[in-house]
Amino acid sequence: MIELREVRKTFGDNAVLRGVNLTVPKGESMVIIGGSGTGKSVTLKCVLGLVRPDSGTITVDGEDVADPQDRDDFLAHFGMLFQGGALFDSLRVWENVAFRLLRGRLKRPREEARSIAVEKLRRVGLREGTADLYPAELSGGMQKRVGLARAIAADPQIIFFDEPTTGLDPIMAGVINDLIREIVVEMGATAMTITHDMTSVRAIADKVAMLHDGVIQWTGPVTEMDAAPDPYLQQFIHGRAEGPIEAVR
């Protein structure tokens, strides 16, 4: 379970998070929505320990992310799909996927790591021939799939998805959404996704949280989202220019 309590973070004069409270139960898929610049990525990076909050606490299965007993061991439970893929240009596709399996505590023999990588690539719909290419030789959709394969390579218990469909055509976005849903269900993992793509939200989410003005404006099951009376949520999910959220931020 992931728990955020009164998390605050300020960059210079810009108070991005102003007391975020959120609970993501084990095995559930939580999607955080919100406009650009509302602090969705910062929230995710705070949970991963990439950004240190100014105050508040974040715990994962009861362990404080700011001070885990063993950081490497702690991070081994996580998988993350980055917005741009964040694949390592200098490594082949399979070496990217098997990165964790080629070094550190999860290190395996090279051949075994490669076969796991090929298997994970197959799981996200990529042929074995892709394994020996470099990331620069792949299309945006394929890079996203490789990023997804890397995120699930070490069978993590918690997976983060940062804008998984940004920059993809609608069909490829649909493919990625379906893959994410299938993989999360199949692995029984806890998932935390940030996006502003409503199609993605409906495909991936069990629960939705809307971040606005540095706080969670609304949270609830995705099935209740459309009927919820919150004006901020309604403006956002229907993409209206008029409403309580200023269109020019």
């Binding site: 991963l48 990439l50 950081r71 991070l75 998988g79 917005q83 964040a86 390592f88 990165f99 070094r103």
Partner: peptide, 15 residues
Amino acid sequence: MKVTEQIDALVTLST
């Protein structure tokens, strides 16, 4: 690597 989040990716991969 930093601007394309590869450094963050390294951290999340326990490196």
